[in-house]
Design a protein around this nucleic acid. Structure first.
Length: 765
RNA sequence: GCCGAAGUGGCGGAAUUGGUAGACGCGCUGGACUUAGGAUCCAGUGGAGCAAUCCGUGGGGGUUCGAGUCCCCCCUUUGGCACCA
């Protein structure tokens, strides 16, 4: 996202890590395609445009120019012929096409729903964009609002999105985040019979993961928005219930989600506990969420903290149905007993004595016979709300016609171009600013030709970036979103390094979209990124970088002062790449010195091919180390190894030989491409160093023939002896005991000898 | 509350499977060169001790010939999710 502030050092950290990997693969002889593009079709850009009073159509190209300038200085191996911008009609034409594909598959649908509404940005947000009850973008507390919205049925794909995680090569942290977000829970749906105030028989379905505790269900709770609330409320309770529903509706998400004090009201109705056959009261409370499960629960106060709290407050009966090892059926419950591994059922008729886990299945089976229960797997993942009541985004390609209904814009009419309008500021109406422009929305129905009305909402920015990897190799093609043959050659993405902040947004949506296209037989793979690694984040002096703290690092000044190569190398050296690290101005001098010493070594090296044996050994060890470290993103240790080698090379003002120096040039090239190219040319290389070859190492040379064997006595290091690498245990013991220090600690015959070849000898005395 | 990551010198960090703790870099100390040094080069740099040696990876236990690494308990920091039934 090309922000107005320009490139952040964090962006550069991410891009450089990718670049090193790409340059390394190219040196290894692979054909590498490394693209980069701009994704500014969303709220963030629009808000900034509003703030500075510049139209986004003017602002975004300006930001992009600045970004491009900064990116080019960073020395990335990006193929700029294949860049893209999600704000361009030739790109978003295909974003709209994507919407149509989902619509065709029945995966895009419109419904009225309580959605997350940001009162400041005046738009709907996806669940993934609500962070701790606040708008991800501006931090304003999010409200609930009832609106007609377009959704994608990502929930249909929940099982696949989850199961595939087991066999894709991704960072565990990212996989865990997705698993938690998808939130599979295995349980049962159980129906509680009841009747409406008019006397009609009906039932309240609940979802539970603790069917084993059903004998302890002493009441039920419906979410305030639950559709059954109305018909179950007795006339004498009506006023109270209505008032309660009003009150909870007005509360914003924050107070609702963070207040621990339970509130609620009785409907006056009762339902039958299908296990006990007893009548239990039906309550309404906002601690039950309409969005999860069935929007209704069975209250088991003995074995659930929230239920316990609620029952205590409203004096509802609390029954023990599970006990631990030192308890029995009559042990009083002063707090809910929630541990279940060790629990045994009590007060549960035929199921008394069952362990918790088997009881779950047995009780569901038992209730299933009466038709009131079935095992069910529930996912936390909600459908993806993609409507945005804003201006800056791709218009959703739909036309409403009085006779034909909801009609998709025909593919030949794409793109639906976002018009330039002056008054793009959103308002409270719940509709997009585009709805103020007849010239945009008054259109003919593509089916029957009668007057129709265009959809005026635009789509979520995350839809734009859910498919860009598919577009990159096909940039320039106007007739297709992506060319078949080109896609086959380059995709899925071989290696992707990104931030974990996208774990449940971009990275989940991209997987979903890819699966949908696979199912529509448009793609022959269903996972977009074969390998994904989450990089760490850079902090500064122990604190997160932020504008308000004023500790943002602008890469420009550092590149100016130290050069792009030293800066890149420093960023990769400051910590383990997958963990990030602490940015300290002063430390950049270290990597700069390293590169200077490398440069000086080339200038001063002796022209003859002679070389020192121990230096050559070190060289081959270094080549091996760097070759092994780069693929596992251990950039910091790869750099350290090269520094170490330079130190050996120049130890005591030694003049290095040509053969000792030259292999360093391609070795350092992924990190410091500019210097590497320069040195490559100076030393007679032709073309680019990146078209040369990655140096190979001689395994025989990479090992030393004599080693330092550590000698321990009783596990404590007492000496180090220099011995042949392949020394036998007996010989090692003899040599070790000849050492005066060792001899001093060994009185008499050794009790035991532990010999680890090439490493150590431990004498237990 | 739940899920995850992490605690190592003055600082950033090394230490593939349990096997020399502190690689590499910053900083610091001393020296060389120099009119000068915030340049460059050389040497040193975990703590205590004259030394032999002892102590050292958040704390406490344990397993082992041997633990930064494995097991149990606890503390701290940090990221994410959060009334998810």
């Amino acid at each position: 996202y090309p922000s107005a502030e320009g490139l952040h050092v964090g962006n550069l950290f991410a891009f450089t890590g990718n670049d090193i990997y790409g340059r390394f693969q190219r040196l290894k002889g692979h054909n590498v395609f490394e693209p980069l593009g701009y994704d500014a079709f969303g709220i963030h850009s629009e808000n900034y445009a509003l703030k500075v009073g510049v139209h986004p159509m003017d602002l975004i190209p300006r930001n992009i120019d600045n970004f491009r300038r900064q990116l080019e200085r960073a020395g990335l191996m990006v193929d700029w012929r294949y860049t893209l911008s999600t704000t361009e009609p030739n790109y978003y034409k295909w974003t709209q096409w994507l919407f149509l594909k989902l619509f065709e598959q029945g995966l895009a649908y419109k419904k009225q729903a309580a959605v997350n509404w940001c009162p400041k940005d005046k738009t709907v947000l996806a669940n993934e964009q609500v962070v701790g009850g606040h708008c991800e973008r501006c931090g304003t507390p999010v409200e609930q609002r009832l609106l007609e919205q377009w959704f994608f049925r990502i929930s249909n794909y929940a099982p696949r999105l989850l199961d595939n995680l087991d066999h894709i090569d991704w960072s565990e942290t990212t996989k865990t985040a997705q698993r938690n977000w998808i939130g599979r829970s295995e349980g049962a749906q159980i129906a509680f019979a009841t009747h409406t105030v008019e006397g009609t028989e009906t039932e309240i379905p609940v979802f539970t993961t603790r069917a084993d505790t059903i004998y302890g269900a002493t009441y039920m709770v419906l979410a305030p928005e639950h559709p059954l609330v109305k018909s179950l409320t007795k006339p004498e309770q009506q006023k109270k219930v209505e008032a309660y529903r009003e009150k909870t509706k007005k509360q914003d998400i924050i107070t609702r989600k963070t207040s621990t004090e339970k509130t609620g009201v009785f409907t006056g109705s009762y339902a039958i506990n299908p296990a006990t056959g007893k009548e239990i009261p039906v309550w309404v409370s906002d601690y039950v969420l309409m969005e999860y499960g069935t929007g209704a629960i069975m209250g088991v106060p003995g074995h659930d903290e929230r239920d316990f709290e609620f029952a205590t407050k409203f004096k509802l009966p609390i029954v023990r149905v599970v006990c631990g090892e030192r308890e029995d059926a009559n042990t009083p419950l002063h707090e809910p007993f929630v541990a279940c591994e060790s629990g045994t059922l009590v007060n549960s008729d035929a199921f008394d004595g069952y362990r918790v886990e088997p009881a779950k299945k047995a009780i569901v089976d038992f209730l299933a016979k009466g038709g009131s229960a079935k095992p069910i797997v529930h996912y936390r993942l909600h459908d993806w709300c993609i409507s945005r009541q804003r201006y800056w985004g791709p218009p959703i390609p739909i036309i409403y016609c009085e006779s034909c209904g909801t009609v998709p814009v025909p593919e030949k009419d794409l793109p639906v171009v976002l018009p330039f309008i002056e008054d793009f500021r959103p308002d409270d109406s719940g509709v997009s600013p585009l709805a103020r422009h007849e010239e945009f929305y008054l259109v003919e129905c593509p089916k029957c030709g009668k007057p129709g009305r265009r959809e005026t909402d635009v789509s979520d920015n995350f839809l734009d970036n859910s498919w860009y990897f598919l577009r990159y190799p096909s940039v320039g093609r106007d007739d297709v979103p992506f060319d078949k043959a080109v896609t086959k050659k380059w995709l899925p993405v071989t290696s992707y390094i990104g931030g974990n902040e996208h774990a449940v947004l971009h990275l989940l949506y991209s997987r979903f979209i890819t699966m949908v296209l696979h199912d529509a037989k448009i793609l022959d793979f269903e996972e977009p990124f074969a390998k994904f690694r989450a990089h760490g984040h850079i902090i500064r002096e122990g604190a997160k970088m932020s504008k308000t703290q004023g500790n943002i690092v602008n890469p420009d000044q550092y590149i100016e002062e130290w050069g792009a190569d030293a800066f890149r190398t420093y960023l990769m050296f400051l910590g383990p790449y997958e963990q990030g690290g602490d940015f300290r101005d002063r430390s950049i001098s270290g990597t700069r010195r390293f590169l200077d010493r490398l440069f000086a070594s080339v200038q001063s090296m002796s022209a003859d091919g002679g070389s020192d044996h121990t230096v050559m050994q070190k060289l081959h060890q270094t080549i091996r180390k760097v070759s092994e470290d780069i693929p596992r993103l251990s950039y910091n240790t790869a750099i350290a190894a090269m520094m170490e080698y330079i130190n050996v090379l120049r130890k005591g003002e030694r003049t290095p030989h040509r053969d000792e120096v030259l292999p360093l040039i391609p070795l350092v090239a992924p990190f410091a491409p500019h210097i590497a190219e320069e040195l490559w040319e100076q030393t007679g290389g032709t073309g680019s160093v990146f078209d040369s070859a990655w140096p190979s190492f001689d395994p025989a040379l990479a090992v030393e023939d004599t080693i330092e064997l550590v000698v321990q006595v009783n596990g404590k290091v007492r000496s180090r002896i220099t011995v042949p690498r392949d020394i036998a245990e007996d010989a090692a013991v003899v040599t070790a005991l000849a050492d005066p220090t060792v001899a001093r600690f060994v009185a008499g015959a050794p009790k035991k000898i532990i010999f680890v070849p090439e490493r150590l000898l431990n004498i237990v005395a």
